[in-house]
Write a protein that binds this DNA or RNA. Structure first.
Length: 471
RNA sequence: GCCCCCUUCGUCUAUCGGUUAGGACGCCAGAUUUUCAUUCUGGAAAGAGGAGUUCGAUUCUCCUAGGGGGUACCA
């Protein structure tokens, strides 16, 4: 029987869930889902001083918003500290680890000397075989792993292929700090083992760590999991991701009006491909995703592609779903604070009626909301520059004449309105455009909107005539 | 400095030794149109450089250059 797949996403709670982490989570999630496996969540908070509950909440919220759920309860790594210590002590007892009494100063000097000599930097093994009776009694020691010095450690990586490290390049890392707390390097191994993780998919900034971890697995006699180190995501200029280069928390993408499904689709194509396919439903992603099609080179984050994708998702979404998505996030939308609190049920239902015309021309939910502002505007409208220019005396008198015909429409529907406007144009020997643009200006206060007949219809006869009367 | 990884249009990528090097975003031009979008059609646009291996390299190997990651009593 084949072992069932267990993946994990293991963020450290020192900040929000950034875009690279989100993609790592997505890949782990897809891999597990596609194989009837589980994805576990583990919060790597062994460094207590740098971990915050705000960060934990932000990460959990981010994952939920993105639609990435995890199995079982989240594991908080620091709670397993005693188990980690137990393993360290076991290694100590087996002679596979040792106490080191070096001071910070000695360590720094060691590194500098090694660097100056062009040798691999790091700990030189000073206490590795030293007689413990030489230990100073005023120094609390750390526990170091006694790694092999000869030979190579080879990581069989599903993405990177076989990667070879010379053992002499890898120094003896610290397992237990001088205060007895376990370090990340020890904790990951023990937790991954204890949690039954079969596949580790993580950023390739961990590739070197994998080699050190492999040595510890070996020392422990444990079977290492499958490793996949995925390339990192860079900013638009190719530089490392920073605040200004898209390393925003996923909540920032929510605030910019992106749909979780669109973000997922964008993210899955960063580093992974399936032939020429670009659009994937969640089901397709799960079915098709595999380690073998993950690329080895870093990708740049490209907002315009995300935006295009988001536009496609918006156009293909149900009107009701869009309304729901907006209701959920409008409080976060930049520049929409006024609407967030002022929209009534009535406004929302008009919004939904107008949605077919609106969603054709929006790339983000924020644009969608702003494009609907004409629906909620209170009379008399304020007009932007272009609209004001369009509403000259001639245009106004034309519109006043049109308003008279509108009065006659008994059943206010799109067809009737269109017929009425076209008849009016014929009657007065005017081109439709000559009427439509000023009409749009008068009704919406600006020069861009959905089709004018839709605007008229959604506004309702009374409101439309009212707005025409105001000019 | 040392170790590891990467390198196809501006960007994301396809290609698994033989292709007019394909698709998507963006860009440009045109069509449709009541504005803006949408939609449709067309176009410009790429194998970092240099050696090899081979009948034949984008594809395999090596070197160089460039980029990235690591090098903590962080994760």
């Amino acid at each position: 029987m084949t072992q069932s797949v267990v993946t994990r996403f293991a963020p450290s709670p020192t900040g929000f869930l950034h875009i690279g982490g989100a993609r790592t989570a997505l890949f782990n999630w897809l891999y597990a889902k596609g194989r009837d496996g589980k994805m576990l969540l583990r919060i790597e908070d062994t460094d207590r001083s740098r971990s915050t509950t705000e960060a934990i909440d932000a990460i959990l919220d981010g994952m939920k918003w993105l639609g990435l759920d995890w199995d079982d309860e989240p594991v908080f790594q620091h709670k397993n500290a005693s188990r980690h210590q137990e393993i360290a002590n076991q290694l100590l007892a087996q002679g596979k680890a040792y106490h080191c009494y070096c001071s910070k100063e000695e360590l720094t000097k060691m590194r500098e000397d090694a660097r100056a000599a062009g040798k691999p930097p790091g700990y030189d093994g000073m206490w590795r075989d030293r007689d413990p009776s030489l230990a100073p009694d005023d120094v609390k020691p750390v526990v170091r792993f006694k790694g092999p010095i000869e030979g190579n450690t080879i990581i069989k990586d599903e993405v990177q292929g076989d990667v070879t490290f010379a053992n002499k390049e890898l120094d003896d890392l610290i397992l237990l700090r001088s205060d007895g707390s376990p370090t990340y390097m020890l904790s990951v191994i023990v937790d991954d083992h204890d949690m039954g993780i079969t596949h580790i998919i993580r950023g390739d900034d961990h590739l070197t760590n994998a080699a050190r971890q492999a040595q510890i697995y070996e020392a422990l006699g444990w079977q290492p999991p499958s490793f996949s180190h995925i390339p990192l995501i860079h900013g638009a200029d190719g530089a490392k991701l920073s605040k200004r280069h898209g390393a925003l928390g996923v909540e920032a993408y929510r605030a910019m009006g992106y749909l979780p499904a669109a973000l997922r689709n964008y993210l899955v194509r960063l580093g992974w491909s399936h032939g020429d396919d670009e659009i994937f439903s969640t089901e397709q992603m799960i079915e098709l995703f595999g380690l073998e099609n993950i690329g080895r080179s870093a990708a740049r984050f490209d907002f315009s592609k995300l935006e295009n994708l988001n536009g496609q998702y918006i156009r293909n979404s149900d009107d009701k779903d869009l309304i729901d998505a907006i209701k959920r996030s409008i409080g976060e939308f930049e520049g929409c604070e006024d609407l967030a609190s002022s929209l009534e049920d009535d406004d929302w239902s008009r919004f939904e009626i107008a949605m077919p015309g609106l969603k054709e021309r929006a790339k983000t939910l924020v644009e969608l909301v702003n494009s609907a502002r004409y629906l909620f505007a209170k009379r008399p409208l304020s007009f932007d520059k272009k609209a004001t220019k369009l509403l000259n005396d001639e245009a106004i008198s034309t519109l006043k004449g049109l308003a008279v015909d509108f009065e006659e429409i008994a059943d206010w529907n799109v067809e009737a309105i269109e017929q009425c406007v076209r008849d009016f144009a014929d009657k007065n020997d005017l081109k439709l455009g000559k009427i439509a643009q000023p009409l749009r200006a008068a009704l919406t206060g600006c020069t861009v909107s959905p089709g004018i007949f839709d605007v008229l219809f959604v506004l309702g006869k009374q409101e439309a005539l009212g707005r025409l009367a105001d000019i």
